[in-house]
Design a protein around this nucleic acid. Sequence first.
DNA 1: CAGCGATTGTGACTGTGGTTACAATCCTCG
DNA 2: CGAGGATTGTAACCACAGTCACAATCGCTG
Lengths: 216, 216
Amino acid sequence: MVVERLPLYLRAISNLTKQGREVISSQDLGAELHTTPAQIRKDLSYFGRFGKQGRGYHAGRLLEELRHILQLDRTWNVTLVGVGRLGKAIISYPGFAPQGFRIVAAFDADSRQVGQLVGGLTVQPMSELERAVREKDVSIAIVAVPATQAQAVIQDLVKLGIRAILNYAPVTPRVPDSVRVKAIDPVLTLQSITYYLRPDGASLAGEEEQDERTPV
Amino acid sequence: MVVERLPLYLRAISNLTKQGREVISSQDLGAELHTTPAQIRKDLSYFGRFGKQGRGYHAGRLLEELRHILQLDRTWNVTLVGVGRLGKAIISYPGFAPQGFRIVAAFDADSRQVGQLVGGLTVQPMSELERAVREKDVSIAIVAVPATQAQAVIQDLVKLGIRAILNYAPVTPRVPDSVRVKAIDPVLTLQSITYYLRPDGASLAGEEEQDERTPV
DNA sequence: CAGCGATTGTGACTGTGGTTACAATCCTCG
DNA sequence: CGAGGATTGTAACCACAGTCACAATCGCTG
């Protein structure tokens, strides 16, 4: 939970730095990110003491510290499996590289995709996956295949020693505890957002149980 | 938190139903989703009593109940702002419609995009946004514009009465409390995933504070 | 129709994450 | 060089989400 917020802090600090700020208070960060200063201080203090009382945090220093904590002070080689529409959009997305994530190989089971040049990468057949993972020191995979193939693909990736998976397929794959899986699924996200879209904002929970829940 | 899991349950039940199951236990769901049966029972019981002791849950009934709770027993009109590579991939994604999310209009500030036909929709200029939202009863927007424009676009959307935003732009926009924003940002996701990718799996927190934290 | 295995719903407990409040510390400025 | 305003780091508190355990209930079977 804390860890999920650090990248947010990273981004905010980076923004403020670009605006010329050299010292940043938890107040500033809170304003930028729409949270409370206390939350931010608590989070940061969990990893060390980076600030100066009465002053705030030195932006550059804090940036470095957070990068180090998140292991972002290196580059990560990423492989992509599934080069359909979504996969192509992912390869072409210019946002990964500046943050140190390099997509170094792309694979697809569909022979019609194989050989194609997408965003500077030649799409390879699945049979080449093992070699690429081994030779290019890949520990993160992005999975953008149809739901039906996702579990099988992920199983393969795990077998090859992949340690983290960004999963765009609408499935909840079974993986060993040592492997980190994060899902990105816009449909699931929308499906939970609609819960809050009631005309009045009234809660539904307990609606009809109101009576039965009163203690006897 | 509970609400975020319901769509997952929905998906799992739907899968099991397709396999011909008519009665489903919390055990089954737990296996499918990689969580504990207790968690699932607790979550469901929060909204009502849908199961039968000794038996389990009736799949069809539970499906309906969850859909009702999440307000998924209707269709939602969605508008897309930003028809770049990502926006195009979103429009063309066939996963929204079956779940009742219809993208009914697409907009872009870039005049070169306007007029283009993408996935059956004609890209419109931003000036048409207001009319579309009003006439088509749109309450959800997907934002896929560059970071620099995101805050402005979102401000507009809010002003037009949009109540929920799925934000693909790498910014944390400021919106009134009445508007729900969910972010989808693969970079942020990767940036937190790397934290756990240590060779040993050792935690970093408190590394150098170990001593100073011992109570005096 | 009684007994048994299965499964729910929930009360009690636990742990964790977040908030509040404040002492400690720092920088600046007169 | 002392006083004051600012800001951190954290201890104490609070709330809530998740886990555990079990009584209550169900359907089935002999």
